[in-house]
């Protein structure tokens, strides 16, 4: 339908839509997050749902205490290697369609604890992440911005065709490998289906203290 005609109709109180738009409109305005926090970012996540920042304006105030009822997983905080299997299992238990916001430096890459022996270097090693929010911790505005970005992403999803999202495609997996506790590290240390080491050109000199070039 012609966009101009559509906006003209909406001015007259007539809403024209199609199934895909209706579906996306419904989903993007009722993203229910999973009620769990891992570290200090969770405090900002809580703050963003309270009266001052009021995430309820975007239909995402219903924090569900069960993964069975949640659409969105906000990974808010440092993921220790001991906690990582639980996070992945929770993600697996969420019904499709499901989305992940990786909130804060720790959830993206390990953050300030990246070189630690006990910290996972980012949750995207095991589960697909839709939105990354940098910050340590990100402010509630940043989380709301991420939610709006996720809404835009949902709005652009196709109902049919090859570019349709994972949950509409029967061939794509809904569950991802839960890492096992190994003798030295988690096994596997990353899920190759989801994550590849970033491809960068690194020139190293013996005495180069400036790092990578």
């Amino acid at each position: 339908m012609d966009e101009g005609l559509k906006s003209e109709l909406s001015k007259q109180g007539v809403v024209a839509t199609n199934l895909q738009e209706l579906y996306n409109w419904g989903r993007r305005n009722s993203i229910w997050p999973l009620n769990f926090g891992l570290a200090c970012c969770a405090i900002e996540m809580i703050a963003s749902t309270m009266a001052r920042y009021d995430m309820a304006r975007f239909g995402a105030e219903v924090f569900r205490p069960s993964p069975r009822q949640a659409d969105l997983m906000i990974v808010a905080g440092t993921i220790t290697k001991k906690m990582a299997p639980q996070v992945v299992r929770l993600y697996n238990q969420m019904p499709e369609p499901k989305y992940v916001i990786s909130m804060g430096a720790c959830a993206i890459s390990g953050g300030p604890f990246k070189q630690g022996y006990n910290v996972l270097k980012g949750i995207d090693r095991y589960i697909p992440v839709d939105i990354y929010i940098p910050g340590c911790p990100p402010r509630p505005e940043a989380l709301i911005d991420a939610l709006m970005a996720l809404q835009r992403k949902i709005d652009a999803q196709q109902l049919t065709g090859d570019s349709r999202p994972r949950h509409l495609n029967a061939d794509e997996p809904s569950e991802f490998t839960v890492p096992k506790f190994g003798a030295h590290d988690l096994e596997p240390p990353q899920n190759p289906v989801v994550w590849h080491a970033p491809l960068v050109q690194i020139a190293l000199a013996e005495d180069d203290d400036s790092g990578t070039a």
């Binding site: 030295h184 240390p189 970033p198 790092g211």
Partner: peptide, 10 residues
């Protein structure tokens, strides 16, 4: 464990 990942300012 050798799970090194790219660091911009190593």
């Amino acid at each position: 464990p050798d799970d090194y990942e790219y660091e911009p300012t190593a």
